[in-house]
Amino acid sequence: MSLESVMVTGIVLFIIGASGFLLRGNAIVLLLCIEVMLNAVNLILVGFARYLYGTEGQVFVFIIMTVSAAEAAVGLAIVVALVRLFGTADMTRINLLKG
């Protein structure tokens, strides 16, 4: 188990999250894909913190977890407001800007 294997795992997880963000239309699944991407970044940060024997990587992971919790709260509030307004969470049907 080397740093490269940790990085490859993190990169694969990030690609899966990014592809899911482009593929899916459900707003809640989009938020879940964002969580997958943040998790991949956390994994790479912890790998580097272990590799370089520093504490900054783990401190950054704490900050990313805080930002992720705030993002989930605000994002889910937006989803609730969207469903209340449009009656659906499918992002392809919400096209107010198309006129």
């Binding site: 188990m1 080397s2 740093l3 940790v6 790998g47 913190a49 272990r50 590799y51 024997y53 520093g54 504490t55 783990q58």
Partner: peptide, 10 residues
């Protein structure tokens, strides 16, 4: 140090 040696991280 290679990662994966348990018990001696910060």
């Amino acid at each position: 140090v290679s990662p994966g040696v348990p018990g001696n991280g910060p």
